[in-house]
Amino acid sequence: MKLAKLPDRTPVKMNVVFTPSLAQRLREYAAFYAETYGNKEEVAELIPFMLEAFLDGDADFRRSRRSAATDIAPP
């Protein structure tokens, strides 16, 4: 079969506590998103994508993950 087994897609719910100033900035970001795309999204809907973009954009983190993967890879 050419298609590999699909990865686990079960959502994982996490509770996070923000400082009041960060919560306000996130609300402002959601408003900016709505202005930009004409589509209102709740902050809770945006956060997973924001975090993913942040992690994908962190070159040091990507390098660290690649290094860890090669350290674990079987010979």
Rank of each mutant, 00 (worst) to 15 (best):
T10E: 08
A53L: 15
N39A: 15
T10C: 02
E42C: 01
P48V: 01
Y29M: 09
I72W: 14
D60A: 01
P48G: 05
A30L: 00
D8I: 07
V43N: 01
T10R: 10
N39M: 12
K5N: 02
L46V: 02
N15V: 05
F54G: 09
K40Y: 04
F32G: 13
A23T: 06
S21E: 09
D60K: 01
F49W: 13
P7T: 04
V43H: 08
A4M: 03
A34G: 06
V17H: 11
A53K: 12
S64T: 12
P74L: 14
K40N: 07
D56R: 05
R65A: 11
A31D: 06
M1E: 04
G38A: 00
L6K: 13
Q24T: 07
P48T: 00
A59V: 14
E41D: 06
L55T: 05
P74Y: 10
N39H: 14
P11T: 10
L26E: 13
F54A: 13
L55P: 04
Q24P: 00
S67H: 11
I47S: 10
E52L: 12
Y33T: 12
E45K: 15
A73G: 05
E52Y: 12
P48R: 04
V12I: 07
T10S: 11
A44V: 11
A31C: 09
D8H: 11
L46Y: 07
A69Q: 10
Y37L: 11
Q24M: 15
R9E: 13
F49E: 10
P7H: 05
A44H: 00
R66Q: 14
L6A: 07
R63P: 01
S21V: 07
T70S: 15
D56L: 09
M14L: 10
V43W: 00
E45F: 11
Q24H: 06
P48E: 03
Y33M: 08
M14V: 15
T19C: 02
D71R: 12
P20Y: 00
E41K: 14
E41A: 06
R66S: 11
L6H: 06
P11F: 00
V43T: 01
S64M: 12
F32H: 15
R27C: 06
L55M: 14
D71E: 11
I72R: 08
T19V: 03
